[in-house]
C-alpha cells in the first residue's frame, strides 16, 4: 500500500428528505449514510458489505457524485471533489468509472454495443469512427466477447454477457478507480464465477483500484483485500479480508458471518440469530446503532455511539466492548 490513497472519504453523510406536502418542508430525514470514512489505496480492492438498506448504494453513488452528499469530504487522487462544479466533475469522471448491479437496466436498450462501450471515450474526446470501433473491438476482446457483438443490441445477450459489456464500458478510459455496485448479484451461479475471475484478471492487466459493494459476504471476502461492514449507514468494522474470515470483533459482523450458510454438509451451523429487524434509518436508535439487537449490549451502548477504534494493525471496530476487551 502506498502513501497517498486513490480515494479518501471523510465523514460522508447523506440524508434523504421524507417528502412532506407538496410545498412544505420535509417531515423527516432518511439517514442513509451517517458519517463514513475510509481510504482506498493504489492497487487495492476495498469491499463494502452489509444488508440491504444499510446505505451501500447511496454511498457508492455519492462517491461518484451521482448523488450530492449532505456533508463530508471526498478526495480522488488527492483532489477534493465535493465542491467541484458540474463541468469540473465531468472531467474527473475519466478517472473513476462504475459497474452497475443490473446489467439489463444499466445498458441503453436502443444503443448498439459498440456505442455503449465507447461512451466514456466519446464523452471526453472527438474520436473518429474507425478509432471508436477499434477501441470497442479491443475492449470486447478484453472482456471475452466476440467481435460480432459490436453491432448487436443489449437484448441479444445473456445476463453474464451484458455484465461483460458493462465492465468493458467501465474500462474504456483506463480509470484509476472502479466502483462496482453488486457486480455479480444479478447473475446465475455458474456465471458469477466467470465474472469474478474476469474482474480479477482485468484488475491485474488494467491496474485499477476498486471499491466493491455487495450484500454477499463470500463474494466480498473472495474479491477484496480489505473489507468494511456497514450497518444502518455507518461502518461498524473494517479489517483485511484474510483476518475477516476468522476473527470478527463486532457482534454484528460475527452474526452476519455465522448466518452465511456454509456449502459443506459436515459443518452444520448454528447461526447467531439476531433478534428483531433492522431499525428504520429515519429513526435510528440513540447510542450504538446496533444496540437494539445486540446480545452484549450494556448501559453505555444505549447512550453514546462508538467510533472506529484500531484494535490491531489495520483492524478497526466501532464497539464499546472492544475498547480493550474483545467478544
Amino acid at each position: 500500500m502506498s502513501q497517498q490513497p486513490i480515494l479518501d472519504v471523510q465523514d460522508i453523510v447523506k440524508y434523504f428528505p421524507v417528502a412532506g406536502g407538496l410545498w412544505s418542508k420535509p417531515k423527516a430525514w432518511i439517514k442513509a449514510v451517517d458519517g463514513i470514512s475510509f481510504q482506498v489505496y493504489k492497487g487495492e480492492s476495498f469491499g463494502l458489505v452489509g444488508e440491504s438498506g444499510c446505505g451501500k448504494t447511496t454511498l457508492g453513488r455519492t462517491i461518484l457524485r451521482l448523488i450530492e452528499p449532505t456533508s463530508g469530504s471526498i478526495k480522488l487522487n488527492g483532489r477534493e471533489i465535493t465542491r467541484l462544479n458540474q463541468r469540473e466533475m465531468r472531467a474527473l469522471r475519466r478517472d473513476v468509472q462504475m459497474i452497475f448491479q443490473d446489467p439489463q437496466a444499466s445498458l441503453d436498450p436502443r444503443m448498439k454495443v459498440a456505442s455503449i462501450v465507447t461512451e466514456p471515450l466519446r464523452a471526453f474526446q472527438k474520436t473518429g469512427r474507425q478509432q471508436l470501433r477499434d477501441r470497442a473491438l479491443n475492449l470486447l476482446e478484453k472482456v471475452g466477447l466476440k467481435a460480432d457483438a459490436l453491432d448487436k443490441y443489449p437484448h441479444a445477450f445473456s445476463g453474464g454477457e451484458r455484465q461483460r459489456i458493462g465492465i468493458a464500458r467501465a474500462l474504456c478510459l483506463n480509470p484509476s478507480l472502479i466502483v462496482a455496485d453488486e457486480p455479480v448479484s444479478a447473475l446465475d451461479m455458474s456465471i458469477q464465477a466467470q465474472v469474478l475471475n474476469l474482474l480479477g484478471d482485468l484488475k491485474t492487466s488494467f491496474d485499477f483500484s476498486s471499491l466493491i459493494i455487495s450484500h454477499d459476504l463470500s463474494v466480498i471476502n473472495h474479491m477484496c483485500d480489505r473489507i468494511a461492514v456497514m450497518y444502518l449507514g455507518v461502518i461498524v468494522e473494517m479489517a483485511p479480508s484474510n483476518m475477516f474470515g476468522r476473527i470478527q470483533r463486532h457482534p454484528y459482523t460475527a452474526a452476519l458471518v455465522s448466518a452465511v450458510p456454509t456449502p459443506d454438509p459436515h459443518k452444520k451451523q448454528s447461526p447467531i440469530t439476531l433478534e428483531g429487524e433492522i431499525p428504520s434509518p429515519v429513526n435510528p436508535p440513540p447510542g450504538c446503532l446496533f444496540h437494539t439487537r445486540c446480545t452484549y449490549c450494556f448501559e453505555h451502548c444505549r447512550v453514546e455511539r462508538p467510533t472506529l477504534v484500531e484494535i490491531q494493525a489495520g483492524h478497526t471496530v466501532a464497539c464499546w466492548l472492544n475498547n480493550g476487551r474483545g467478544l
Partner: peptide
C-alpha cells in the same frame, strides 16, 4: 462438480 468448485467460499 463444476458448480461446487466455482462458488466463492468464506473459507476456501
Amino acid at each position: 462438480r463444476g458448480l461446487l468448485r466455482s462458488i466463492p467460499r468464506m473459507q476456501p
